[in-house]
């Protein structure tokens, strides 16, 4: 039976869509960031592959045929960025400075602690873009010799952590300004953090959405400099 399914090229697509859909239903039911549809989708697909003994390379190869969709989809993030630029025009300087400092510090902390703990280079590279949106983070990781799968998982876990700890961190660090809160969520925890920012206020959500794109772009700029030292 598994052999038969392996030979059908739509099966991995169906498996992925079904696993994602289950994740989405979980999130709708429990409304907690930990029930992230991509994360649950990944766990279910892995569980399925391990349980049935289906060939994981075959799954990856078949799904890889759809990977061309990722670049145009990532490019489209320019549209919310454009719209948000208009809305947030007045605070642009403060937002850009905050995102820039945040994105740079994120990579420096990872590089410093990672070197101290003597992580393998490919692990370190995979961790560097972990605060930015998967759309940019995964291609960056792979471009510098990191592991795309590891980066995807760490990015999602980072987003969930930022989403859950965010309100507490705002209190702890005395971040009360709505725009500043948004910048913190977007820079540290990309789209998943932005979901929480949207709950706080519309302005916070807008600042977070803009920050996550800018953080992605700046990380792409800083990455060669920092990866060069490793």
């Amino acid at each position: 039976m598994i052999k038969l399914l392996e030979s059908i090229s739509i099966f991995p697509v169906l498996l992925t869509l079904a696993a994602f859909r289950v994740g989405q239903l979980c999130q709708q039911k429990w409304k907690k960031p930990i029930f992230n549809p991509t994360l649950i989708g990944m766990i279910l697909v892995i569980a399925f592959l391990l349980a049935t003994g289906m060939n994981a390379d075959g799954y990856s190869a078949e799904m890889g045929k759809m990977s061309w969709l990722m670049t145009p989809a990532s490019i489209c993030v320019a549209i919310p960025m454009y719209e948000l630029f208009q809305i947030l025009q007045k605070s642009l300087k403060a937002i850009l400075a905050g995102v820039c400092a945040g994105a740079l510090s994120c990579m420096l902390v990872i590089a410093a602690v990672g070197l101290l703990l003597e992580f393998e280079q490919s692990i370190l590279i995979s961790l560097l873009p972990k605060s930015v949106t998967t759309a940019i983070g995964v291609s960056l990781s792979e471009l510098f010799g990191g592991m795309g799968g590891v980066t995807t998982a760490v990015i999602i876990v980072t987003g969930i952590a930022g989403n859950m700890m965010g309100p507490m961190l705002c209190k702890l660090f005395g971040i009360t300004d709505e725009v500043a809160q948004g910048v913190a969520f977007g820079t540290a925890a990309h789209v998943i953090g932005t979901a929480k920012a949207n709950e706080l206020s519309q302005l916070t959500g807008a600042a977070s959405s803009l920050s996550l794109v800018v953080a992605g772009l700046l990380t792409a700029v800083f990455m060669p400099m920092i990866a060069g030292f490793l």
């Binding site: 992925t16 991509t38 990944m42 892995i46 994981a56 759809m66 969709l69 990532s74 995964v138 999602i156």
Partner: peptide, 12 residues
């Protein structure tokens, strides 16, 4: 986009 990232994540 979030659906497209399931299969790279399985790459772990």
């Amino acid at each position: 986009l979030p659906i497209l990232f399931v299969s790279p994540a399985v790459g772990i």
